[in-house]
Design a binder for these strands. Structure first.
Lengths: 77, 77
DNA sequence: AAATATTTGTACGTATGTATG
DNA sequence: GCATACATACGTACAAATATT
């Protein structure tokens, strides 16, 4: 079953943020994070929704984005 | 001249956030804040853009939103 | 050096759902 | 029941920065 549950009352962007947060904190996703387009394809969510999820993680300080380069995890201390 | 300058390199949503922040901090906008639709009409910006501006002010703790009720300023300390 | 591709940023439009009055 | 207001989600287009060929 897909990690994103469209039947859940939990908003998709928050579900995705939770999934990515887990992948980052587990260390599975260190360094470069898949591009927005890539995540859009991988999770079958609109790019806007992916952006919203990344926005949460950015606010949390888990990732940083750089136009033209990509998205990167921030070293956790 | 309109407060929002489309020729400026400053993003529209940040311009609007700045304008609203000023209106709030000056005390002109205490209590209820005009609805998203109202701001959309007043500043001739897409509703999405207005939401983005309000999102900033929400993160800053200047306003709170309540579905079905509206947007309200938060007492500043 | 130049053109192309990739990636994030900004902005608009639309539809539907949920909460409140 | 109806109107209003915010929330979520999809789609699209173009700009700007960077990387690649």
């Amino acid at each position: 079953m897909p990690v994103i549950d469209r039947a859940s009352p939990e908003p998709l962007y928050r579900q995705l943020a939770a999934v990515l947060r887990a992948r980052i904190e587990s260390g599975e996703l260190a360094g470069p994070v898949p591009s927005i387009r890539r995540l859009h394809e991988e999770y079958d969510l609109a790019e806007v929704t992916v952006r919203q999820a990344l926005g949460i993680l950015k606010t949390e300080g888990l990732i940083v984005t750089s136009p033209g380069r990509g998205t990167f995890t921030r070293p956790r201390r």
